[in-house]
Design a protein around this nucleic acid. Structure first.
Length: 834
RNA sequence: GCGGACGUGGCGGAAAUGGUAGACGCGCAAGAUUUAGGUUCUUGUGUCCAAAAGUCGUGGGGGUUCGAGUCCCCCCGUCCGCACCA
């Protein structure tokens, strides 16, 4: 066994067989309940091949899971497939292959890739969103939510593609056009299913407090902003000579005396009424909507308005009239779709007032120019005069309440979640529309029909000859099945619960969920910071309220790993060029295959369009799974973006070869039972202590750096250290690095110890606290804060001894009488002030 | 515009509580091995200086302190999120 280089192919093949058998039963989890650890990585969409982002995400998760297992915890570490969604359907449209066939083939090949990376997944828990087992259970949850009133029909505007005859998500609308058809997208009012997530706005906001310190601050902040709570008042404005009223939400009730006009949204019911029988208004409303669709333009959009002819009474000033305008800057779905404008203290109102020559009345005193948004003393406001803004707000709300024209009101920015999709490849909405009974729950399960055609336009379910024609379960009359399917975020909102009981007769088995939840650590991309993580939090709360579980949070800790980036290259024509297709000429210039000069662009997220991707399979073949794993968790903290660097990947392979060679030499020393120093025994404890801390903090780059440092020291001492000490320390080194490079670690452990302990028990080495602390320290000697020398001394030595040694170390550089002051900091530094 | 994060060698990044800045890795340089290239090994590698001593050094400027990457104030820059939210 004196192979010069380490044969990763053979070793990885041998051990990955064992890793893929990883399984912990629910009994084990329940029996060991207080020592469980549920490690969850966000499940991938089965596009066909893993990309580097997956490799990194899952490598981080696997390292943590293996470390937790070594600590003696019962580790739940599942994997599954987010297998509903558009790409499968698009593939079906272009290739004719059925989404199911396409998806299942992709899952097979990606699963193979995951296994080849040695990830320790519990495949007995595997789930796939598009499987009948999964989505039929989801339909039970849907109906429960429906019965609880948390799912309802709502009319709302959607992006309608008139060529493809379907609704598009916002992300699929590019420059106002459908991403595939190129058709100009229309805003269409459709009745759709929505989830009443707004009912939980306050609890979702409050819940963020429990996550502080465990979720990244930026994610918490994003969710907070997304929920967007604001406190204010609801004020009723009466329209003169009409019985109409306009309720208005405001956070600035203090500026009510400065009100100069009222602005309503083009979608406000008064606007719509005017538009319905007057061309001038309908033209104006139409124009406003046009500008609203080209989203990028909103930023610079000019304020536009049209006078309705109505005036509203000022609620506090007798005889004062406020003109009512339709204004393009007022949003229909926030507050009440109407605002009262105080131009002196709001930028938008100011711009509008200037344009339409409306009065501007200052009510907050300040030397600054208008519009002034800061704090100050109220003026021109009768009884509010002299108060601060916040005093005036609370006084005013009470006052309005007393007068019966207003009340305290809290508004959220959060909207209900629209879940209907006019798509085939999703979970069918288990509802039947009956002309007599309305929306009636269908008998579940409702399975997708497989005999569908993708040749036509629109939703294949809609076009299926028979599927949608059913009898109403309530009255027996002919009725129509809902042909929409659920947003795929619905599947990803509860998959972490289904992993716990993939074969259970109901969606969730409470027995295991109560023990295993919440997930201890969830790892995924920051792109899910808002939607997915908010929906998942909502689901857990709603499921709790329906009695499914006791947990109130899905994920105790969250790690948002950074993107995997690679340098991109462009040739002289502006075409993106694959790094592999670039040649370097003698003068250092770069050229592509067609001998066009190529230029370096920035490091950016790997993407096919920029041609800066690296295929995981390719580098697994060339470098092996361990090298890839080591490389991808080294050097960069998990939460930061990772810049691909092929040289550093080679460095990882080099390290594997080095430890492999060291093993050979150590085995030789053990065989000879060679004598020598035992210094490494203590060093092992010192290193393991630090390494443990870094694993616990998921500072994997630092854990790896320390492992390397530890190994460097062992390697350096092979010739001078005793066989016993070498064996002891190398065994510990193997355990320390094992979570990162499990294949080679197993092989080495087996060779070194002739046991399979690592595989069976994998216990993390115990750390002897006494041995794990250094007994000498290095003291820095400074003069006026500048380093002059260093010396070693026994830890916790007396200050006077340290001081004496410090002077000695300076070789009489100083005269005692020049010294003004000496500061001794135990175990660290001596600073002499002269 | 609002909100948040960050700024350390040629590069990725280390530095509880203020206490030797640059761990570990990549790159680079010199040497050894090799027919050569690659691999491997050794040594070096923040800056200025021929070298030593020394100087200067954590985006810039000020401050607190015996001592500042770390704390405070003012700038500058980069990235991310939201974006007419009343």
């Amino acid at each position: 066994m004196s192979d010069a280089t380490y044969d990763f192919k053979q070793v990885e093949k041998k051990w990955s067989k064992f890793f893929e058998q990883y399984n912990v039963s629910n009994e084990e989890v329940i029996n060991n309940g207080n020592k469980k650890s549920y490690i969850l990585e966000m499940l991938p969409y089965p596009s066909g091949k893993l990309h580097m982002g997956h490799v990194r995400n899952y490598a981080i998760g696997d390292v943590v899971a293996r470390h937790k297992k070594m600590l003696g915890l019962t580790v739940i570490h599942p994997m599954g497939w987010d297998s509903f969604g558009m790409p499968a359907e698009n593939a079906a449209i272009s290739s004719g292959e059925h989404p199911k066939i396409w998806t299942e083939a992709n899952i097979e090949s990606m699963k193979k890739e995951l296994k080849s990376l040695g990830y320790m997944y519990d495949w007995k828990r595997e789930i796939s969103a598009c499987s009948k087992e999964y989505y039929s259970q989801e339909q039970k949850i849907f109906l429960d939510l429906y019965k609880k009133g948390l799912i309802y029909r709502k009319k709302s505007y959607v992006n309608w593609d008139p060529i493809d005859q379907t609704v598009l998500a916002n992300e699929q609308v590019i420059d106002g056009k459908g991403w595939r058809s190129g058709a100009v997208i229309e805003k269409k009012m459709l009745e759709q299913w929505s989830v009443k997530i707004t009912d939980y706005a306050e609890e979702l906001l409050e819940g963020l407090k429990d996550l502080e310190g465990h979720w990244p601050d930026n994610v918490l902040k994003m969710q907070e902003n997304w929920i967007g709570k604001s406190e204010g008042a609801l004020v009723n404005f009466e329209i003169i000579d009409s019985d109409k009223k306009i309720p208005i939400f405001t956070t600035r009730s203090d500026t009510l005396f400065g009100a100069s006009f009222i602005a309503i949204s083009p979608d406000h019911e008064i606007s719509r009424e005017l538009a319905s029988n007057n061309k001038e208004f309908s033209d104006f409303v139409f124009e406003c909507k046009k500008t609203a669709t080209t989203e990028e333009a909103i930023e610079k959009a000019e304020k536009k308005g049209k006078f309705t002819g109505f005036y509203a009474k000022h609620p506090l000033l007798e005889g004062e009239k406020l003109p009512v305008y339709i204004a393009n800057f007022v949003l229909i779905d926030y507050g009440t779709g109407a605002v009262f404008a105080c131009p002196a203290h709001d930028e938008r109102d100011f711009e509008f007032a200037k344009k339409y020559d409306l009065p501007i009345k200052r009510v907050i005193d300040s030397a600054e120019e208008l519009p002034f948004m800061g704090d100050g003393k109220l003026i021109n406001s009768e009884y509010l005069n002299g108060m601060s803004v916040s005093q005036a707000k609370s006084y005013m709300i009470n006052h309005l309440q007393k007068l019966g024209i207003g009340s305290r009101k809290i508004t959220y920015r959060l909207r209900d979640w629209l879940i209907s999709r006019q798509r085939y490849w999703g979970c069918p909405i288990p509802i039947i529309q009956c002309s007599k009974c309305g929306a009636v729950p269908a008998e579940i399960p409702v399975y997708l029909p497989e005999d569908v055609s993708f040749a036509g336009k629109g939703n294949p379910l809609e076009n299926h000859p028979t599927w949608k024609h059913v009898k109403c379960p309530a009255c027996g009359n002919a009725a129509i099945r809902d042909t929409d399917t659920l947003d795929t975020f619905f599947e990803s909102s509860w998959y972490f619960l289904r992993y716990l009981c993939p074969d259970y007769q109901d969606p969730i088995d409470k027995k295991i969920a109560d023990v295993a939840m919440p997930v201890d650590l969830c790892i995924g991309g920051v792109e899910h910071a808002v939607l997915h993580l908010l929906y998942a939090r909502f689901f857990v709360l709603a499921l709790r309220d329906m009695g499914y579980i006791n947990a109130k949070i899905p994920f105790k800790s969250l790690l948002t790993q950074g993107m995997v980036c690679h340098r991109s290259y462009q040739n002289a024509d502006g075409e993106w060029v694959y790094p592999d297709d670039i040649e370097k000429s003698a003068n250092g210039k770069l050229f592509d295959k067609n001998e066009k000069e190529v230029f370096e662009r920035s490091f950016e997220k790997m993407s096919k369009s920029k041609k800066n991707t690296i295929s995981p399979q390719k580098i697994i073949d060339s470098h092996g799974a361990d090298a890839v794993r080591l490389f991808i968790v080294s050097d960069t903290p998990p939460e930061k973006d990772f810049d691909w660097n092929t040289d550093a990947l080679d460095g990882a392979s080099r390290f594997l070869n080095r430890i492999w060679k060291a093993l050979d030499r150590i085995l030789q020393k053990v065989k000879e039972n060679s004598q020598g120093s035992n210094s490494l025994i203590k060093r092992s404890h010192v290193y393991l202590k630090k390494i443990t801390k870094n694993y616990d903090e998921i500072a994997l780059n630092k854990a790896v750096a320390l492992c390397r440092e530890f190994f460097n020291e062992i390697e350096r001492k092979i010739e001078t250290e005793s066989a016993e000490s070498l064996k002891f320390s190398f065994e510990r080194f193997i355990k320390a690095i094992y979570p990162v490079i499990p294949h080679v670690s197993h092989e080495m452990f087996e060779k070194l110890t002739k046991s399979a302990e690592l595989l069976q028990n994998a216990y993390w080495p115990e750390i002897d606290e006494k041995l794990a602390t250094e007994d000498t320290v290095t003291i820095a000697v400074q003069i006026n804060g500048k380093l002059k020398s260093v010396f070693d001394i026994e830890k916790d030595s007396d200050d006077s001894l340290i001081e004496q040694k410090a002077f000695e170390s300076l070789n009489n550089l100083l005269l005692k009488e020049n010294i003004k002051k000496t500061i001794v900091v135990k175990n660290r530094v001596v600073n002499i002030v002269v």
